[in-house]
Computed example of a mutant assay.
Amino acid sequence: MPEFNPTQYAVPLFVVAVLAEMIWAKLRAPEAYEPKDTLVSLSFGLGSTVAGALLGGFAITLMLLAYDWRVVDFGPEWWTVWWAWPLCFVLDDLKYYWVHRAGHRIRWMWASHVNHHSSQHYNLSTALRQSWTGAFTFGVLFGIPLVLLGFHPVMIAICGGFNLIYQFWIHTEAIKRMPAWFEAVMNTPSHHRVHHATNPRYLDTNYAGVFIIWDKLFGTFTPEVDDEPIRYGIVKQLGSFNLLWSVFHEWIGMIADIWHAPWKHKLSYLLREPGWSHDCSRETSDMIRAKWQVRTGIEVAPAATSVADRNPIAGSQEAA
């Protein structure tokens, strides 16, 4: 099968879309874009591309090794099995939901993913804030089940590329709501604005990539309400446009916490939720939401949790 990377072909469309949104923002919402913030977002995108080229080999090698242990074989011309493509796309999106959720609920994963949430603006350039350090987490392991089911790593990578392309357009305030049938099934700007919000009612919700049905199925869906303006970014904002600080601040904070923590708590600062502290000196977003509910009397469905998944999106310190 010839090499194909769908995101390469989408880049010109990304550029045109960002320019079009800038024109819209100048006429309708000048606060939507801030020049320094946009420059940081563009730099994130460039750096992520370079990091992927330099560090992506490990993930590819691991998945190719796992492919030798597949339990289903689509044959030597696997790319001609037409029905495998839509099935792979749906299953890859389910995989994305769980790796994304882990990216918010495990501090080691959050240290990489926080980059995407670090802007206090929500526009198409924000979509370009992709991580430079994803190769240093264990996110690749979420794709191994798909490989073992017989989907070739190249097929998975292509489906993942289309998934990423889809997610670009939902990073905007220019579109308020899509038709109700579309909002019911697909991820949309409205749903994803909720995900990028720091409002207590919205924390830990809407992890979907393409299909919002995963959030509805696993209890992490929250709709956007019109009577509460969304505040974007992270719980403790960066307060800086320094690119390197934006990229590495959470890694620095996490390593410092592990270094200073008592031995019995060191691993918890790596694997527990952002905002967790052994002396309860910080707040997780479960705590933030609980205080907000007491203060306002508003009840919202909590994010679904399990024994291994109790970790909120961002604490008052680690998520900054």
Rank of each mutant, 00 (worst) to 15 (best):
I230K: 04
W214S: 04
F221T: 09
H171Y: 13
D215I: 11
P179E: 14
G150H: 08
G150D: 13
I158Q: 03
R231D: 15
A157N: 11
K176T: 12
C159M: 15
A208Q: 09
N199D: 13
W181T: 07
E224I: 10
F221V: 12
V194K: 11
H192F: 10
F221K: 07
C159H: 00
F218E: 09
E224N: 02
I158V: 15
W214H: 12
N187L: 11
N163L: 13
P189G: 08
A184C: 13
F218Q: 02
L203G: 04
N206D: 06
E224L: 13
N187S: 04
N206I: 12
A184I: 02
G209Q: 01
G150N: 10
E224M: 14
P200K: 07
H171A: 03
Q167F: 03
N187I: 03
G150S: 05
P200Q: 14
A157Y: 09
F168G: 00
Y207Q: 09
H171D: 02
A208R: 05
E224H: 05
H171G: 01
M178C: 11
H152Q: 03
E224V: 02
V194I: 15
R231Q: 14
F151W: 07
T220V: 10
H171F: 00
Y202C: 12
H195P: 02
G209E: 10
I212C: 07
V225F: 10
M186G: 03
C159T: 13
T188E: 04
Y207W: 05
Y207I: 07
N206W: 08
V210K: 00
T198S: 11
T220R: 03
F182K: 08
G209V: 04
N187P: 03
P200V: 12
L203R: 07
I156M: 12
W181V: 15
H171S: 04
P179K: 09
V210A: 00
N163R: 14
R231M: 07
H196M: 11
A197W: 11
I165K: 01
I230Q: 15
S190L: 03
I156W: 05
N206M: 06
Y202W: 09
T205M: 14
V225G: 07
G219W: 10
W181P: 10
V185D: 04
F221M: 09
I230Y: 11
A174H: 10
T222S: 13
E173G: 00
P200L: 12
N187K: 03
L203S: 04
D227K: 11
I170D: 00
H191T: 15
S190E: 07
F168W: 00
G160W: 07
T222M: 15
F168S: 02
M155A: 14
N163S: 15
W181K: 06
I165F: 01
T222Q: 15
M155N: 08
V210G: 01
H196D: 00
T188A: 02
W169M: 00
G160S: 15
H152S: 06
L217S: 12
Q167N: 13
L149Y: 01
V185F: 09
F162T: 01
I156N: 08
Y232K: 04
N199A: 06
V210D: 02
G160I: 08
F221G: 05
W169A: 02
D204I: 09
I158A: 01
I165M: 02
T220E: 11
D226W: 05
V210T: 04
D215L: 10
W181H: 12
R177Q: 12
A174N: 08
D215A: 12
I213Y: 00
A184F: 14
F151I: 02
